[in-house]
Write a protein that binds this DNA or RNA. Structure first.
Length: 364
DNA sequence: CATACGTGGTA
DNA sequence: TTACCAAGTAT
């Protein structure tokens, strides 16, 4: 491949066409780092609003290091992969302690931070510090699978190595960060899953285009099985407050809050499952009095259908005893925005807020 | 090397 | 409606 020709044309395209993203304005190491963590497995357009809110609240390493994890998770709510937020917080504390609050400029030190892998370390080192390091993400793999017409699975080790080698040969010493971003931007805007080859600025370098194999590239792994789950959850209201609990470390959504509930076992009705789950999780006898809504949501490889009920105590009110949570308690419905909820439970709250049947519950 | 980890957009 | 998957990392 004509190295200088390709690199020059790609950078030319990037200079003219790149998106105006907030972290590209004052690209301090902290800002680049946060944007890269937020961007992991997340589309850039979705990152922007979270990024702005984050920078308003945590403008630098120190403010993040001094924050409580609860607030960090609350700002992250809805972005998913919450370990990223926890690691960002941990890393900020670590930078304060071990690097005197100064973001480390060397690849190895960046790579050592929790939540930073090969991709992110390369991205931050090249974009924020001008280091000549590759940053190989899904865009780069897809782009080079087509440029090189790779017939091996590009996500496997051998495929990654081939792409990384190609990037190392092409990345220019004077603009490594822009080159890495250019390949990714190109992958996001032009060389997408459904590529816009008619608008491609580097078509002359594309072996797949030449061979007519673009639709076959990249070679992807077999898709994984999707698992369907039926669940029930209950909104237990007592004296104007609702019961929530905080999920345990090691569970899905560790540290996030939810309403008690769980999977509907074979042969159970949603109502039966809900009574059982309340007994098992918080030792409370409850009665579902009204179906609120059915929420559908998905996480990782699960597709969940969740029947949601308004509940009251079945008999005398009692104190919950939490078996499946680190803690919990009754809170005012209006204060639910202060807690980070998984998307399914947040959808439930949002629908209740919009439903006149339950308006009286949200008056404070 | 395989799997878990979230979510919403898109075709 | 379903399947795919996006600026990946940790275990």
């Amino acid at each position: 491949m004509d190295q200088t020709g390709f690199t020059r044309k790609l950078l030319q395209w990037y200079d003219a066409e790149h998106r105006d993203l907030p972290w590209r304005h004052e690209p301090s190491p902290y800002r680049v780092w946060v944007s890269e963590i937020m961007a992991q497995q997340t589309q850039m357009d979705r990152v922007v609003e979270y990024y702005k809110r984050w920078m308003d609240r945590f403008p630098d390493v120190r403010s993040l290091a001094e924050a409580h994890e609860e607030e960090v998770l609350n700002l992250w709510e809805g972005l998913g992969y919450y370990t990223r937020a926890r690691n960002l917080h941990r890393a900020a504390v670590l930078i304060e302690e071990h690097f005197k609050g100064e973001f480390p400029p060397d690849f190895a030190d960046i790579r050592s931070l929790p939540g930073v892998g090969d991709y992110t370390a390369g991205a931050v080192a090249s974009i924020a510090f001008g280091r000549n390091e590759p940053a190989v993400d899904a865009n780069v793999l897809r782009v080079f699978a087509r440029l090189l017409d790779m017939d091996l699975p590009v996500r496997d080790r051998a495929g990654r190595n081939m792409v990384e080698d190609a990037v190392r040969r092409l990345i220019p010493d004077d603009r490594p960060g822009d080159f890495n971003q250019a390949v990714m931007e190109f992958g996001a805007l032009i060389c997408r899953k459904n590529p816009r080859c008619e608008a491609c600025p580097v078509r002359e370098f594309c072996r797949a285009c030449e061979m007519g194999t673009v639709p076959l590239r990249p070679v992807l792994p077999a898709s994984k099985e999707v698992i369907r789950i039926d669940m029930a959850t209950g909104f237990l209201v007592h004296q104007g407050r609702v019961l929530i609990q905080k999920r345990k470390p090691g569970d899905v959504w560790p540290g996030l809050w939810e309403f008690p509930g769980g999977c509907i076992e074979p042969g159970e009705t949603p109502e039966q499952a809900l009574r059982r789950e309340y007994l098992e999780e918080v030792e409370l006898a409850v009665e579902p009095v009204e179906k609120i809504t059915v929420v559908r949501y998905s996480y990782t490889r699960y597709r969940v259908t969740m029947d949601c009920f308004l509940c009251r105590y079945d008999g005398e009110p009692a104190e919950p005893i939490f078996h499946e949570a680190v803690k919990g308690g009754f809170v005012k419905p209006a204060e639910l925005s202060d807690y980070a909820l998984p998307s399914g439970h947040r959808k439930l709250v949002d629908r209740m807020l919009a439903d006149m049947r339950f308006a009286h519950l949200f008056k404070s």
